[in-house]
Amino acid sequence: MQQHRPLPDVTVLSDHAEVPGLGFLPVNTFVVHAAEPVVVDTGLSTPGKDFVAELASVIDPADVRWIWITHPDRDHTGGLWSLLEAAPQAKLVTTFLGVGIMSCEWEVPMHRVHLLNPGQRLDVGDRQLVALRPPLFDSPSTTGFYDDRSGALFSSDCFGGPMPSPEVAESGDARAAGDTLRDTQLLWASVDSPWVHHVDEAAYRATVDPLRALDPSAILSTHLPPAVGMNGQLLDTAAAAPSVPPFVGPDQQALEALLATFEPA
């Protein structure tokens, strides 16, 4: 993992996952250095990952007071259960549906859950975190937020995109993707939010406009290097998502053709 500080009170722990045929998807965890420190998402669950050890290089896990899971996909919850053990005073911020999804696999400690819906606020001592549903999402439990002190927008999967290399994925600056950024974000929108091709475009764009009004100091997506000073570009790209061709993945014939190129074991 690489560490970056896009804002004075936000640290990013940057990791990535290779997506064959698409590229290298950033997988970020964020630490909001509030009076009551907040960890946003907890990384990958692949073997060999020690999320708590990585986090300890930024903050003593015992000091964490809130763990905000933007939605319970496994690339967001990899270190959740070990962090709950290492941070005994921390509360798990999620939705009612998020608890239900996680409960299919784990025993969720309900006495440590804090349920929050889009539009509600979480007081973390020196700031309010305003929960919101980003325009693009792949889970009905998705909840990002706007930090009213730093001005940062935490957007979960929205604005993400696979990068051309691991170095770019963990670069700490979305501009490192260069001219490919718009295309890769639109590809990801089609992969991750396929429903966007079936919406009323005017109604959909009305979900993007409130983010323009917020004018965040940074857009912090779990699946994009931090984006500072790029609001117009990213919001225009998100607004265009309904108009791009739907993603169609490889089928069995393509898989067999690929396997045929491998050398025998």
Rank of each mutant, 00 (worst) to 15 (best):
Q2A: 07
H4R: 13
R5E: 10
P20A: 11
P20C: 07
P20S: 09
G21W: 11
L22C: 03
N28C: 05
F30K: 00
V31L: 15
V31H: 11
V31F: 13
A35R: 15
P37Q: 06
V38W: 08
V39M: 12
V40K: 03
T42L: 02
G43P: 04
S45W: 07
P47G: 09
V58G: 01
V58E: 07
P61L: 11
D63L: 07
R65G: 05
I69F: 05
I69K: 01
H71L: 02
R74E: 14
D75K: 03
H76V: 12
G78D: 03
L80W: 02
A90D: 07
L92S: 10
T94R: 06
T95K: 08
F96H: 13
L97W: 15
L97G: 15
G100N: 13
I101T: 13
S103I: 10
C104Q: 13
E105G: 02
E107R: 13
L115Q: 14
G119R: 14
L122R: 09
L122W: 11
Q128M: 12
R133F: 05
F137G: 00
D138C: 15
P140K: 05
S150C: 08
L153F: 07
D157C: 09
D157M: 00
C158R: 00
F159D: 00
G161R: 11
P162E: 03
S165G: 09
P166N: 06
G172E: 10
G172P: 11
R175G: 05
R175T: 14
G178P: 12
Q185F: 03
L186P: 03
A189L: 08
H197I: 02
D200K: 01
R205C: 07
R205K: 14
R205V: 05
R205Y: 09
V208A: 01
L211E: 00
A213G: 02
I219Q: 04
L224H: 04
A227D: 00
A227V: 03
A238G: 05
A241Y: 12
A241M: 10
P242N: 08
F247H: 10
A257N: 13
A257V: 08
L259Y: 11
F262I: 02
P264A: 03
